[in-house]
């Protein structure tokens, strides 16, 4: 086809461009804005760790964690979604809306920590996948302990430790006495 064929074909066809605000419909599985399903988020901070542009910032506090996300900084690489151990993150299947000022679309979420089964104070959340990644084999006792808040966990460890120490000391004394 020569150039004349090309332009006459273009002339006969509908234009390929759009009149704003019409937009090209993105493919299915498009990587759009990141969303956090806070119910599943365990505030592990992996997303913050892998995000190259600092779009996601996770800041932990005593009783909750602030998860913030600014699509204006996001590169839509999807690393955070892929690596999120809670599968809390997902990406919209549509293009981000146009916005005028930086930070217009920023999201801030609060992840409240669940109550510790022993003392009722906030305890760091966890989930199975994170445990599997971080620890090879998990005893039932460990699984129990991971639910506790840090103070209770320390206390539980202390109890075990003192018990153990006590036992050992007993034996030693016995040995001395013998």
């Amino acid at each position: 086809m020569n150039i004349l064929g090309l332009i006459s074909r273009n002339f006969r066809r509908d234009p390929a461009t759009y009149r704003y605000p019409e937009r090209h419909v993105p493919a299915t599985r498009f990587r759009g804005i990141v969303r956090n399903d806070t119910a599943k988020c365990i505030a592990c901070g992996i997303c913050d760790h892998v995000c190259v542009s600092g779009a996601i910032v996770v800041v932990g506090h005593d009783d909750h964690c602030d998860w913030s996300y600014d699509p204006g900084r996001c590169t839509f690489c999807g690393r955070c979604v892929d690596l999120c151990p809670g599968e809390a993150l997902s990406q919209d299947g549509d293009r981000a809306p146009t916005y005028a000022r930086s930070g217009d679309l920023a999201q801030g979420e609060q992840i409240t920590y669940p109550a510790c089964p022993e003392c009722g104070l906030p305890a760091r959340p966890y989930n199975e996948r994170l445990l599997m990644i971080a620890h090879d084999d998990i005893s039932p006792e460990f699984r129990e302990r991971i639910k506790l808040c840090e103070r209770c966990r320390r206390r539980r460890s202390q109890t075990v430790l003192t018990k153990g120490l006590g036992g050992a000391a007993d034996t030693e004394r016995n040995a001395d006495g013998a």
Binding site: L6, P26, A27, T28, R31, T75, F76, R79, Q91
Partner: peptide
């Protein structure tokens, strides 16, 4: 210009392909 537009119209098909495969148009990750 016309040839430029033709090339870019065809390139758009490739971009759509890449978008369908990777979900992104430029940095495919």
């Amino acid at each position: 210009q016309t040839l430029f537009m033709t090339c870019f119209a065809l390139r758009e098909k490739v971009m759509d392909l890449l978008e369908a495969v990777s979900g992104n148009r430029v940095n495919y990750a």
